[in-house]
Design a binder for these strands. Structure first.
Length: 482
RNA sequence: GGCGCGUUGGUGUAAUUGGUUAACACGCCGCCCUCUCAAGGCGGAGAGUACGGGUUCGAUCCCCGUACGCGCUACCA
């Protein structure tokens, strides 16, 4: 634990669902904050008016809460550094932008989007690097004033210092250096008056006292732009940590084309939040030597997490392993809580769970067989639907040995007070002794009579779940098929 | 194209400050358990650490180059 006042932030733009990659970024921020006794802040980067999606923020917050990644400051929660929506901080950006302008670190530019496109097109044909040719830097003060006065739309661009080399150290990647000549005179303020990511991000991170910026690798190459801004303002640069991307099986950036990428979808399919958190944490991070566990509670993760142990290389999202891990969580989950979670899935599969005692038994029987909650109905079906038999199966039951077994079993069960998890199996052993029939010939008729299926959980469990009455009824049906 | 980052079995990862038969998990295969299917137990195949140089008595680990992958190259984040 550290007593430094670490402050980190998760700063998504509200474009819809929570991408798995964002989830992991959020998780690492959360773990880092909790491990160091710091603060975890949620900031909404809604500066792109054209990409706004209705309800996205609510859904984002819901998902974070559902996963237990509670933030200390942000929308709804509030905090001393608000507002936490960038769209509500426009005046601030304007003010700092003016400061940049007056200090000569930024300048006005008046090209239209079409002009810029044309410029890039020409550069491309000439085989040159496509970037803004910095022509706005050559405008005289009078020219600028004239254009401004006549109301021509403008943007404000960063005046990148030329012929320099920007070096910085990333907590995950080590030393990185980039020539400033490679850096575009980035737009800081758009013609609609909104800031771009770069401006807003730097200002907010500073104003919100962010000490560590933990974000996706796609931002690594824009760090120099940000450093130039921090310097221009005379601010300290926070520590940086750029986490690797999550990849499709073919190693391209995880995308919707190759499967689900939204956290909500995974939750809906019946992946437990604990499993999802556990699995995502292990994608690109590990606790290191002497730790062979794979299953970690959130508390374990908080205790063990350090940013230095995050890998620098991208990680393929291995759904097989997630499935396995989710199955592990399902098997060891608190029975009552699991039942609560599974009931909606059972109902969804057309199963009536109003008999709660039976539901409890069903959940107990089913949980060893599923890796996802949405697999529950198909395994639970046998306990609810009428037994229906194919001709072949019927034949097996009509066999005289089979009939004998079923009759004896029925009479034994009738005299039982109730069926428990372990008083059924001994009955079968007795029948074996009495009739001399054993193995498949003994078990299969019973299994078919009770479920109509050749496969399933052990018979004792099935009988227990069905209960005395239902077992007798099903046996009678099977006997009367003759 | 330019720049940046990365590269250990199919996948996720491990390997004390360079010295191990390169370890663990998922997946796969087999055996055991067992009425069946799972689960569980046991075992196996699968990498000589992208490739090529160098430094060193000795490199997965340090340096350089190449290849490949990915990212960025927007008035998107």
């Amino acid at each position: 634990m550290s007593d430094k006042n670490f402050r980190v932030r998760f700063a998504p733009s509200p474009t819809g669902y929570l991408h798995l990659g964002s989830l992991r970024t959020a998780l690492f921020n959360y773990l880092f904050a909790r491990h160091n006794n710091g603060k975890f802040i949620l900031r909404i980067e809604d500066t792109d008016q054209s990409r706004k999606v209705e309800g996205a923020v609510e859904s984002l917050i819901n998902t974070l809460n559902e996963l237990g990644l509670n933030y200390d400051e942000g929308p709804v929660a509030g905090g001393e550094y608000g507002p936490y929506f960038q769209s509500e901080r426009l005046k601030l950006y304007r003010k700092y932008c003016d400061e940049l302008l007056s200090k000569g670190h930024a300048y006005y530019a008046f090209e239209t989007s079409e002009e810029l496109e044309e410029m890039r097109r020409v550069q491309q044909i000439q085989g040159k690097q496509t970037m803004y040719d910095r022509r706005g830097r050559h405008l005289t003060g009078n020219e600028v004033k004239e254009k401004l006065d006549s109301g021509i739309p403008y943007v404000v661009r960063l005046k990148v210092p030329l012929d320099e080399e920007i070096r910085f150290s990333d907590l995950i990647r080590g030393n990185v250096k980039i020539e400033t000549n490679q850096i575009d005179d980035q737009v800081l303020l758009k013609s609609d008056g909104y800031p771009t990511y770069h401006l807003a991000n730097v200002i907010d991170d500073h104003l919100m006292d962010i000490t560590h910026i933990i974000r996706g690798e796609e931002w690594l190459t824009s760090v120099p732009k940000h450093i130039i801004l921090y310097r221009a303002f005379g601010w300290d640069v926070p520590q940086m940590a750029h986490v690797p991307l999550i990849l499709n099986p073919d190693k391209t950036k995880l995308s919707k084309r190759q499967g689900d990428v939204s956290t909500e979808d995974f939750l809906n399919k019946g992946y437990l939040k604990e499993a999802l958190v556990n699995f995502m944490a292990l994608l690109g991070w590990n606790p290191g030597e002497g730790e062979d566990r794979e299953i970690f509670s959130k508390e374990d993760l908080i205790k063990l997490f350090t940013i230095e142990r995050v890998n620098a290389s991208g990680a393929v999202f291995n759904i097989d392993k997630l499935n396995w891990m989710n199955g592990e969580y399902i098997k060891s989950y608190d029975p009552e809580m699991l039942e609560e979670l599974i009931i909606p899935y059972l109902n969804n599969g057309g199963i009536d769970t109003s008999d709660r005692e039976k539901t409890t038994r069903v959940v107990m029987a089913v949980k060893g067989y599923i890796n996802r909650l949405d697999e529950a109905p198909e395994h639970a079906k046998v306990y609810y639907q009428d037994v229906s038999l194919s001709a072949v199966k019927k034949e097996i039951l009509e066999n005289s040995d089979a009939q004998k077994i079923l009759s004896i079993l029925k009479s034994k069960i009738v005299s039982l007070l109730e069926i428990t998890t372990d008083n059924f199996k001994p009955l079968i052993s007795e029948i074996q002794k009495e009739t001399g029939i054993k193995g498949k010939g003994l078990f299969m008729p019973i299994r078919l009579a009770l479920t109509g299926e050749e496969h399933g959980p052990e018979l004792g469990l099935i009988a227990y779940v069905l209960g005395k009455e239902e077992v007798i009824s099903r046996l009678e049906t099977a006997i009367s098929t003759k």
